[in-house]
Design a protein around this nucleic acid. Structure first.
Lengths: 202, 202
DNA sequence: CAATATCTTGACCGGTCAGTCAATACTGTT
DNA sequence: AACAGTATTGACTGACCGGTCAAGATATTG
């Protein structure tokens, strides 16, 4: 295909169906072990259908990643919109990130893999850099306002990301903890970690 | 091969050479994209040599993982041996973990991948559980001694792991920060995160 | 009702890969 | 030197995979 195609309603649906099913299979079985044949067989169409809507296995995976990154960032922006206090914004952003991840295990799985594959690691890094910059900006605000002690904002942002992703993984492995519980622990740990005066209620 | 073979000195060396080179290639190129042919060609031997020393691509990878897990745990135990104070032990363990990771980027890369592959995720999880239990035990000590507020020790341990791994990744991506600097930030963030009274010198 | 664009089929192609194996070389022992 | 266990070779097998394409089905438009 290559150039953007004109899609009928039917075509747009088929394309969305391929994206959704491929996401699931990639997350379930892994990117490399999942063949295009697996995907089209699973949907019950011929192999050519896949190549009518996508250039390659690589590009569909990239599109899935980009979509997921956009989703996550939007969720964060929505959660923090309208809040002024930097510490509050931070807590809300972290909470939104944990909740979104808990609701999208397949996409989180794909992020994890993509990070380990040379073909996609740059894309993942780029998307993550955006999130880190968002977080670091809030942290710098907080430092300026003397709400937290001065420190390398980027490193703190990465630390917060690390806590979030790791504890989200725990939620996937042992269902017992609800996403809210996890989010509470993440927020508390991170606010204390950056040296915020009070764990702002929680 | 299957059953443990009797190896001559030469054989043991060849086996070690395969392990080392395979580790490097898997980390560099990825597990799936690296073929057995790539490995034996890189060493300059025939394909049969590989299957003389290992059952399959899967088993050599598992052996690499197990070895790395053992290495990391040993490093931690060595670092914390002889220290009584739980907070001190925690800090030393974290520091050792960061330093080890920084010195073994290939193995860290393999951990990351293995986690994302159904074939190996159980093994990774098992090894990580051991480390988590070690850390959680120290945390429980600290809670009992009222050095930190009561909290779910396992969750805290995972949070600490998350900070360590994420900031280690930062070190890999931007060389500018030394492992020691990274370790300092990790220790500070985590001690504050768990609510330890004073960031014990640092 | 053509004519045109969108969509679908599935056999096929060139290539790669994990793993096998019979033949051969090496090494130490008696 | 003869023997046996260890080590190495590399062509070969069977399977699979990403991607192509000519042919045909379906929908849209003038």
């Amino acid at each position: 295909m290559s150039e953007p195609r004109r899609l009928t309603t039917r075509g747009a649906q088929r394309r969305a169906q391929l994206l959704e099913y491929a996401t699931h299979r990639f997350a379930q079985t892994g990117y490399h072990p999942t063949s295009i044949t697996d995907i089209v067989d699973g949907i019950g169409v011929g192999k050519g259908v896949f190549y009518w809507y996508f250039d390659s296995k690589e590009t569909i995976f990239e599109e899935i990643l980009r979509g997921a990154q956009k989703q996550l960032r939007t969720a964060q922006q929505l959660a923090t919109a309208g809040t002024k206090d930097p510490i509050e914004r931070l807590a809300q952003g972290v909470r939104a990130s944990v909740i979104w991840s808990a609701s999208n295990p397949d996409l989180v799985t794909l992020f994890d893999f993509a990070q380990t594959d040379e073909r996609f690691s740059n894309l993942v890094r780029a998307g993550r850099t955006v999130l880190i910059n968002d977080t670091a900006a809030v942290l710098r605000e907080a430092i300026k306002a003397r709400r937290i002690p001065p420190n390398d904002a980027d490193l703190l942002a990465y630390a917060i990301l690390g806590v979030s992703t790791q504890l989200t993984m725990v939620h996937f492995q042992k269902q017992e903890k609800s996403p809210q519980t996890i989010a509470d622990v993440v927020v508390q740990f991170c606010l204390q970690g950056i040296g915020a005066r009070q764990p702002t209620s929680v």
